[in-house]
Simulated assay, not measured.
Amino acid sequence: MGDKSARGRGGGGGGSSVLLPLVLLGCCAIVPAGQARSINGLETPRGCNWRHEDDRSQQTLVCRLRSISGAASLVGNISTQQAENVFSLGFECSEGLFLDSQLEEGPGATVGPASYLGALPRLERLRLEHCKVRNLPGGAFASAPGLRKLTLRSHSADWSSAALDLHRDALRGLPELRELDLAENNVWSLPGEFLCPSPSLASLNLTRNRLQDVASLGLADWASACAQNLEVLDLSSNELSALPDNGLAGLRALTALRVQDNAIAAVGDHALAGLHNLRSLNLSSNRLVALPPELFAKSRELRELVLSNNSLAVLAPGLLDGLGN
Score class of each variant (00 low, 15 high):
Lys4Thr: 11
Lys4Tyr: 15
Arg9Ile: 11
Gly13Val: 03
Ser17Asn: 04
Leu19His: 03
Leu20Gly: 14
Leu22Gln: 15
Cys28Asp: 13
Ser38Val: 02
Ser38Met: 04
Glu43Lys: 02
Gly47Gln: 04
Cys48Gln: 03
Gln58Asn: 10
Gln59Trp: 05
Val62Cys: 03
Leu65Asn: 05
Ala71Asn: 07
Leu74Cys: 03
Val75Pro: 06
Gly76Arg: 04
Asn77Cys: 09
Ser79Ala: 03
Thr80Val: 14
Gln81Val: 11
Ser88Tyr: 01
Glu92Arg: 05
Leu99Gln: 13
Ser101Val: 02
Leu103Gln: 12
Pro107Asp: 02
Pro113Trp: 13
Arg125Asp: 07
Leu126Ile: 01
Asn135Ile: 03
Asn135Tyr: 15
Pro137Met: 13
Gly138Trp: 04
Ser143Gln: 10
Arg148Leu: 01
Arg148Gly: 12
Lys149Val: 08
Leu150Pro: 03
Ala157Gln: 11
Ser160Trp: 07
Leu166Ser: 12
Asp169Gly: 06
Glu176Leu: 05
Leu177Gln: 07
Arg178Gln: 12
Leu180Cys: 09
Leu182Tyr: 06
Asn185Lys: 07
Val187Gly: 01
Trp188Leu: 11
Leu195Arg: 05
Ser198Thr: 07
Ser200Leu: 15
Leu201Cys: 09
Trp222Lys: 12
Leu230Val: 12
Ala242Asp: 14
Gly247Arg: 04
Thr255Ser: 09
Ala256Leu: 09
Arg258Gln: 10
Asn262Ser: 01
Ala265Gly: 10
Ala266His: 03
Asp269Thr: 13
Ser280Gly: 11
Leu283Asp: 12
Ser285Ala: 08
Leu288Val: 11
Leu288Pro: 00
Leu291Gly: 05
Pro292Val: 00
Lys298Gly: 10
Lys298Val: 04
Leu302Gly: 05
Leu302Cys: 06
Glu304Lys: 15
Val306Trp: 07
Ser308Ala: 13
Leu312Ala: 02
Ala313Lys: 05
Gly322His: 08
